[in-house]
Design a protein around this nucleic acid. Sequence first.
DNA 1: ATCCGTGCAAAGTATTTGCAACCTA
DNA 2: TAGGTTGCAAATACTTTGCACGGAT
Lengths: 146, 146
Amino acid sequence: MITGDSGFLKEKLKECGYKFTGQRSAILEALIQCTGQHVSTEELFNMVKVKHPEIGLATVYRTMILLDKLGLVHKLDFDDGFSRYELVKPNEDHRHHHLICSSCGSVSEVEEDLLDSLEEQILKKNGFLVKDHRVQFYGLCRNCRG
Amino acid sequence: MITGDSGFLKEKLKECGYKFTGQRSAILEALIQCTGQHVSTEELFNMVKVKHPEIGLATVYRTMILLDKLGLVHKLDFDDGFSRYELVKPNEDHRHHHLICSSCGSVSEVEEDLLDSLEEQILKKNGFLVKDHRVQFYGLCRNCRG
DNA sequence: ATCCGTGCAAAGTATTTGCAACCTA
DNA sequence: TAGGTTGCAAATACTTTGCACGGAT
C-alpha cells in the first residue's frame, strides 16, 4: 500500500537520484507513526521489524542518514547515547525548540521562534549569517514543578 | 607549581569530597591553555601527555566527567563524534551560544543571551520553567561570507 | 592507615563498512 | 541489464569498567 506520504518520499528520492524501496517506505511509515516523538534508530528498527522481519539494522542507519541529507528528518541529540530523529513538518521554516525536563526526562516542543532579533544582532556584531539553529531548554516541566 | 587556578580546583574538590591529584591539576592546566577552544578528551589527553607521559586516557575521561559534575566545564556536542569541553567562565550565569560555520567548521561564541523574553513566554504558554539552555547557530562566518 | 584515584587492558555500545545477492528503474 | 540497495557480519571508534597498585589525606 502506497500512502500519500510514501508518494512524497518516492518523488523526493527520484528527484535526488535515489531509488524508492520497500524498506525506505516502511521506515518512513514508522516515522509517521511516531510523529511528535524523538525516536532512536534502534527503536525505529524494532517498529519496522514487526511488519518486515527481514530488515537489517544497518539499513535503518543508512536510511536515516539519507533522510537527514534529503531534509526529511532532523537529527537530534539529547546526550543519551543515541542519535534520535523527528520528521520535519511540512511548513516548518526553522527548527523548533525542545524543552527537556531535568526531572522526568520528557521532551516537548516550542513552536515559537523568537530568535530573529538575536540572529540580527549576531549578524551585526559577529558578522555571522545565521541559517539554522538548534535550541534546547533545560528545566522543569509543568508536572514536575508541582 | 600550584597556580591560582589549581588552588581553586583544590578547594572545589575538597568541598565535594574528592582528592586533589597531579593528574586533575594537569588536566585543568591544559583546559586553561585552550581557553576559547572546544577540546575533545583525546586532544586534552595528548596535551597533558607532553608533561605527564604516564597519564592514562581513562583518567582524562573520568576527570572530564567529574569536572562537568562539579560545574567547572561544560560538555559540548558538535556532532563530530567526540565529546568536547570548555571551561566555565568565572562570572558566567548562563551558557553562551555557539556560532558554527557550515563552510569552514569554525566555532565562535556569543556572549549576549537575549533569551529572557522567550524563556518567559515558555513559562507562560508551556508551564515550563527554564533553568538552562543550549543554543547553536549554524550559518556562515564573516570570512566565509566573503 | 584508609580508601580514593590511576594506569592498563579488556569490555561495552552505537555506528559504519565490505561484500555478495537482490531488486528498482 | 545496470547499478543502487540490502542483510549479514565484521570492523570501527569513542567511552566505560575491572582490578591491582599507588598516592592523597
